[in-house]
Structure formats: C-alpha cells, structure tokens
C-alpha cells in the first residue's frame, strides 16, 4: 500500500458515509454521466449546509463540490482500467479542529504501469517545497505547446490552488491481478477561514 498526502480518513464502509454511488462508465468519454452524478452529490450537500455566517453559502458549496468532484470523476473515467468507479462522501463535523469539511473519496482501478507517473505527480503536489501557483503556470505554458495535457495534473492543481482543497491518494495493489485500487480523497472546507 502507498499513501501520498495526508489521507486522514479511513476508507469507509458503505454504511458509514452519507452518500455512496457506484457506477460503470459505459464508454471512455462518459462525461454526461460524470456531470449527472456530480450534480446529484453537489445538490445533496448544498442542502446540508447551515445558514450561519461561519459557513460558505449553499450556492458556493454547490459550486465547490461540483468542480472538485467532477474533476475527480473525470480522472477516474479517463484513467480507469477495469471495474466500477465508487464515490463515497460524508460531512465531517466531528473533527477536533475548528473546520468542518465535506470528504469526497473517489476510487477506481488502475494498472500497475500507471502507478509510477501518478506517484511522481502527486508526490510533487503535496511536497512542502512545491509552489503550486508556479507549477500551475508552468503546466499551462507546457500544455500550450501541445504536449500531453491529459496527464498534466491540471485538474488536481486547480483543486489544490484555486479551491485551497487538500488532496491525498491511496494505492492498494490487488493481489493476483495486474490492477491497483486508487482512491483519491478531497477535503473541502465548508466553514469560512
């Protein structure tokens, strides 16, 4: 098993999360289903946000979850090698720190050969030495040269830089198969500051 970033939530049993969705993309570019699922989860959580000053508005939360989850599901569809995609989520109000969060966990199977590039990219993203803004601008300049943007990690970088949302990754090899289960975690703050 390999963990990158601060993966501080257990992989959940289905009955422990607020909302679970498992689906099988019917084609490689199944963006329409990604959007439908994203909207469902975003609408679900926007109804759970208290109308108090310390919280972002329901509309803001809807937008944040929409952008972040859509990026994670699109990645799962793009890089998945086999099996279903699972989305688990819950509202984390029991954390001892003052912040409250929506935790999103998106899982899919990748091949062993995809692990090295993913580990390298994500390790850079979570490194304390990385200037995310600088990295984002470099990636955009690089993509503008017509390079392989699909694997550029721009979605991850925008989530971390523009939305100040930490990401973490867990890779668990499946014994006796050539596949590894990848789970990406996003921790979206619902409180202001």
């Amino acid at each position: 098993m390999c963990v990158i970033g601060h993966f501080d939530t257990p992989l959940l049993l289905p009955e422990c999360s607020d909302l679970n969705i498992t689906f099988q993309p019917y084609k490689e570019s199944d963006w329409k289903h990604c959007a439908i699922i994203t909207n469902c989860v975003a609408n679900y959580y926007s109804l759970m946000i208290p109308t108090q000053e310390k919280y972002f508005s329901a509309d803001e939360i809807n937008h944040y979850v929409s952008y972040i989850l859509n990026e994670l599901i699109e990645n799962a569809v793009k890089f998945r090698k086999t099996g279903q995609i699972t989305i688990q989520s819950y509202l984390d109000k029991e954390n001892t720190d003052t912040k409250e969060h929506i935790i999103l966990l998106v899982s899919n199977m990748i091949s062993r050969s995809q692990e090295a590039a993913l580990t390298q990219l994500t390790s850079t993203l979570v490194s304390a030495d990385t200037d995310l803004e600088q990295l984002m601008l470099e990636k955009l300049e690089y993509n503008a040269l017509g390079k392989d943007e699909a694997a550029s990690g721009l979605g991850f970088i925008t989530i971390m830089h523009d939305y100040h949302t930490p990401l973490a990754w867990k890779l668990v090899p499946h014994i006796d198969t050539p596949f590894t289960k990848l789970t990406t975690m996003a921790k979206i703050a619902i409180t202001v500051d």
Binding site: Y67, E149, L154, G155
Partner: peptide, 15 residues
C-alpha cells in the same frame, strides 16, 4: 461551470 480542460483551452488562448 467550466472544467479544467476548459480552463486549459482559455489559458492556451491567452498564451
């Protein structure tokens, strides 16, 4: 809404 692929094409055009 605009996803990161869309942000990428706007950025490319700006460059």
């Amino acid at each position: 809404f605009l996803n990161s692929s869309g942000i990428n094409i706007l950025s490319k055009f700006a460059i």
